[in-house]
Design a protein around this nucleic acid. Sequence first.
DNA 1: AAAAAAT
Length: 500
Amino acid sequence: MSDADSNAATPATTTTATTTTTIAQPPAVTKTPVKETKRWADMEDEESKNTLSASSSEVNIDNLKIDEEKKINSFLDEAEDSNIKAVISGETPYTSAKTFEELELRAELIKGLYVEMRFQKPSKIQAISLPMILTPPHKDLIAQAHNGSGKTTCFVLGMLSRVDPQLKAPQAICICPTRELAIQNLEVLLKMGKYSGISSECAIPMDSTNYIPINKRPPVSAQIVIGTPGTIKKWMSAKKLGVSNVKILVFDEADHMLAEDGFKDDSLRIKKDIDRSSPHCQVLLFSATFNETVKNFVSKIVKDYNQLFVKKEDLSLASVKQYKVYCPDEMTKIKIIKERIFDLGENIGQRIIFVRTRNSASMLHKQLVDDGYAVTTIQGANTPEVRDKIIKEFKDGLTQVLITTDLLARGFDQQQVNLVINYDLPIKYDTQEPDYEVYLHRIGRAGRFGRKGAVFNLICGDRDEATMRKIELYFQSEVTVVNNSEEDFEKALKQSGLLE
DNA sequence: AAAAAAT
């Protein structure tokens, strides 16, 4: 199942909200009728009369709701507006796409969206970003949107649309931080592009049974390549992946791909090589998080670009309730996992337990298995075969509880996960400060596309308490204390909508 | 320290 799959589950209310663009049927909540969609360039002109003079302008989509009431037309009128702000470069006009038809996609792609993906209409980030991606002159894009809101569809559809089906050469490349994410994204692409006839290939380390030495590999002829930095770099330097026809380059989890302590060097190297032989390549940067430092940096590596972003205070998912449990010692943590997360949580779907190190992953795994609990564990030290197997079992629903390092913190899309446990809180290695971005990504593994979910943070000691407090402050989010008792856990699970 | 290439 993919990120984008969840579109099918869009609540019916949002469907009606977008179609009420006629004067005859104004939405009940709106005081004035909505008339027609407005082009972004018009918006920009009006904005710039008052406040802005530069070539780019900021459009607050929330303000547009107010404008709407002032009888100024709006291009976005969804019920669950999620506070995405747009900064548009230059004169190019964009109209938010209320339907996939408006995007003028090839018929085979429309069929893939409806028949395979079972989508009804674009999600908010899709509605805004797809016109930006697909409209010439194909500007670069920095796009931030909430976890589980359908970002994958944006760039997968972007790649499928922009590829020339007649040209049998690599034309689109997508770089991801982990093997698991590359595979997941390729699966979405295969599904969405089922009728398109467009070929694709995954550039990740092969498992030992399929291993072919690089010099014996044929050159890549696939039109879309999705992979991890090391393998892509390797294929390029071995001249097996030609990039002279590449016209779209995607960085998934872009903030991490371009962070100093992430994959910055690899990413820049790949981008530079593509720039050299394909200077007009469009670059798309997608993530749920862009902290100020990395935002400043990424805006330097793209040229003429549009931008979508979300304030950090608006980033926590309202549908995922956050809790904290004070634990006097480490043994209590394990006890909570056994008695509450396993025993009590038996009927509430799949659960992911995040730990900080590979070592604690193994320790916790052993503690649980020795006591007869059914759990699997994944971490980077596992072989590709083991990793693939553990993920497949979990995605097939054969396992219910998965222990993981931050390997799965980002992007992993499994709709049946509705409970996330932070066995350890995420902290930055160098400064010991909270890792806010990782925290947000972890809890985003629950509550995919608006589903209900909960996260339990296990707090042990003063440092954990301080870390938790800073995280609450940073996102302005409420984290409720839960006492370590069956009643209180049950209450919390009911409150978050996971128990009847 | 998590992640990512192999050999």
